[in-house]
């Protein structure tokens, strides 16, 4: 990643909402109903997609939890894509991040299910599978975010030379 394009990454830590980013801080007081409705509606779509995928990919409860693994890695790839697209836009739509990032992808991926699956595997005597699952999810998810961000960053033209999306997050 080049120096210029990595700027938003360096400033924004939390893609859901980062109070160090003035636009994030202002969005809830400015449009509380719209922001919360967008997050809620996105969360419903994301959770339904996760539930559908989990039902379509039944797995052996004593084996590697592939459905959750697939959900979390694909969601991580997509958050990388989304944040790279938004960073390139001069003025991204106000509800794009709350709806797609906080809502859809946040509702689609899950930390709790992954934690209880690992606990269940360990208590069933499959501690090695549990550890492998936790490690594979952690490493795979980071790689997926990076691939999603870096590939999108290379393939997406900037809307303008230095977009407001980048200035916005500077102090």
């Amino acid at each position: 990643m080049g120096e210029r394009v990595s700027e938003p990454e360096q400033r924004r830590v939390d893609p859901d909402v980062d109070l160090a980013v003035p636009a994030d801080r202002a969005e809830l007081p400015a449009h509380p109903a719209a922001v919360l409705a967008a997050v809620s509606a996105g969360g419903v779509l994301g959770a339904l997609a996760r539930a559908g995928l989990s039902a379509a990919l039944p797995h052996d409860p004593t084996g590697f939890p592939w459905p959750t693994f697939a959900v979390n890695l694909s969601g991580c790839l997509l958050i990388g894509v989304l944040m790279a697209v938004l960073a390139k836009r001069a003025n991204p739509p106000v509800l794009a991040r709350p709806f797609l990032g906080v809502g859809v992808l946040g509702g689609y991926t899950t930390f709790a299910t992954h934690a209880v699956e690992a606990r269940q595997l360990a208590s069933d005597g499959a501690a090695t599978t549990a550890l492998a699952y936790l490690a594979a999810t952690l490493a795979g998810a980071l790689l997926a975010v990076w691939v999603g961000y870096a590939a999108t960053d290379r393939l997406t033209p900037s809307v303008s030379g230095t977009g407001a999306g980048q200035r916005r997050v500077r102090r």
């Binding site: 990388g80 992808l105 946040g106 509702g107 689609y108 709790a112 299910t113 975010v145």
Partner: peptide
């Protein structure tokens, strides 16, 4: 599946880790 699944997130957490690292 609904409440706890949507309350927690892996995508946000991974993005944060990568963001801190970069």
């Amino acid at each position: 599946t609904g409440l706890c699944g949507a309350l927690t997130t892996y995508s946000t957490s991974s993005y944060e880790t990568l963001s801190l690292a970069t």
